[in-house]
Design a protein around this nucleic acid. Structure first.
Lengths: 208, 208
DNA sequence: AATATAATCAACCAATTGGTTGGTTTTTGG
DNA sequence: CCAAAAACCAACCAATTGGTTGATTATATT
């Protein structure tokens, strides 16, 4: 185990850490945990691989920090606004959160990439991620879906099934963007396509 | 490069190859290409890692054979029946193929796992996979979706968007089954849940 | 049965990679 | 300005891993 910086860090350090963290998120997303190589992350961030270990302790820790950062951004860009929207009618809140969520998925496809590759893998990292972030998010979304279903705005099915259908249709075009471009010529990452897709998701789910 | 078996193989060899191939598919799905370790695949198949190289030439080749095998099964379990169903009304064909596809995704979650992890990664393996299999499948599905949309049975949107929404909602519950069980207690792999989910997908997509 | 060929294995090799160590530079605080 | 601490780097280490080699066992053909 490397020594941890115990005293408050210098500004220089913070910058390096931030650079490493961002590249780490990209590379973990693209190559998965085992495929991501510390030296590559370091090189792209303009650092050495021993700096990564110095700042984060281990590959595992680095991954955790990257994931934490990712869920923080999700919160910022999608979830927090829900509080100010508490007064709006439920269907309208759903429309807004869906539009934000679609944009988030397009802007940060790493999110789905990381969660999926970890869920496939199973194991401790997944358990940690669920405990730390996923459960909390579910607590926000599941009741909303349940109520929408009760009111007849969503087709009737088990609420978790609805959730995964919703998440699946929202994320998949951006997750498979490379395939879409190569195989159909359609680019789901295009700005106009993203906004149009949010409406398509609403069209598939909501029953007016 | 190892020598290739040039003469027709013995029965013993075929069995070993088949065992290796099946475990390879599982392990490639679970850990991704770089995370899958030849020695592990070999051990699980009751062989040595040099046997894997002997029979398949390289890790890359092994992966290709595993993927080929996977798309062969998809064809068998989902696609071929479409020919006998040519006479049925389009909506009915869509219902049937959807039910088969949902069952396939539940039974072989490796499929989505492998295609997604490769699409995320990009590169030559993805290009090969698309060229060899995906394009051909799209040629079957896209016109079907387009016509259903024309006839008002599906909400209007770009056809590729509809395809990825459809694929996404179909695959995601099984892709994230581990998360679903851990975070919500709902097991999408349960037999009754699978059949119910096929109807849910139809409920989300089809407009009667 | 003898011989050739295919199938298998154990030992080995070189490259990769996560992590360690010890020393050098930079920053901070007195 | 100077000493202590933090940031950083180059060299190193040990484990892992894809692939090779050479010998050994099983099978098929004559």
């Amino acid at each position: 185990m490397p020594r941890k910086p115990s005293k408050p860090s210098q500004a220089r350090s913070e910058e390096t850490k931030a650079r490493i963290l961002q590249k780490a998120r990209e590379i973990f997303a693209e190559r998965g945990f085992s495929g991501a190589i510390i030296r590559d992350i370091a090189a792209e961030a303009g650092a050495t691989h021993s700096m990564v270990i110095y700042h984060f302790g281990s590959k595992e820790q680095l991954w955790r920090e990257a994931v934490r950062d990712m869920f923080r951004v999700l919160d910022e860009e999608v979830v927090v606004m829900l509080e100010e929207e508490a007064e709006l009618p439920l269907v309208e809140r759903f429309r807004r959160v869906t539009r934000r969520y679609v944009r988030y998925c397009a802007k940060h496809p790493e999110h789905a990439r990381i969660t999926i590759s970890e869920t496939i893998r199973g194991g401790e990292r997944l358990a940690w991620m669920i405990d730390e972030f996923v459960t909390k998010n579910h607590e926000g979304v599941l009741p909303m879906l349940a109520q929408l279903m009760d009111e007849g705005h969503l087709p009737r099915m088990p609420v978790p099934a609805m959730l995964y259908a919703y998440v699946g249709m929202t994320q998949m075009p951006f997750l498979l963007a490379a395939e879409s471009r190569l195989a159909t010529g359609y680019d789901p990452m295009d700005d106009a396509a993203i906004d149009a897709y949010a409406e398509s998701v609403l069209g598939l789910t909501l029953r007016p």
